[in-house]
Amino acid sequence: MNTATNAASARNTVAAKGNWLAKLRALALHALNLHLQNCAVIAEAHRRPQ
């Protein structure tokens, strides 16, 4: 999943429509991307030996 592409797509959607549903979609995509980044950091921390 490419976070840069999703973020750009979400911004374009908000700019094109400008309604609350598009803003909600953009917010949900942003939250999902942050969650996936957080999961990747946790997975990397568990993968490395202490």
Rank of each mutant, 00 (worst) to 15 (best):
L24T: 12
A4I: 03
E44W: 00
L27G: 14
A7G: 01
A40M: 03
V41T: 08
A43H: 11
R25H: 13
H35C: 01
A31Y: 15
E44F: 00
Q37A: 09
L36V: 07
V41A: 07
T3C: 06
N19H: 13
A15S: 08
N6H: 06
A16E: 09
S9P: 00
K17Y: 10
A10N: 08
Q37D: 11
G18S: 07
A22S: 12
N19W: 11
M1G: 02
H30A: 06
A16R: 15
H35S: 05
N38A: 15
C39A: 09
T5P: 00
A15K: 13
G18T: 07
R47D: 00
V14T: 06
P49E: 15
R48W: 05
V14E: 09
N33D: 15
A10I: 02
A31T: 10
Q37K: 08
L34K: 09
P49D: 13
A26T: 03
H46M: 04
A31Q: 14
H46F: 11
Q37P: 00
L36F: 13
L21S: 12
N2K: 11
N33W: 09
L21V: 05
L29M: 07
R25L: 08
N33M: 13
L21G: 09
L34G: 09
E44Q: 02
T13C: 02
K17T: 02
H46T: 01
L34Q: 12
V41S: 04
N2P: 04
R11K: 10
A4D: 15
I42R: 12
A4R: 13
C39K: 05
A8L: 07
L24M: 14
T13V: 04
H46C: 02
H35T: 01
A22K: 06
K23N: 04
N12V: 03
Q50H: 12
E44G: 00
L32M: 08
C39M: 07
A10R: 03
N19M: 03
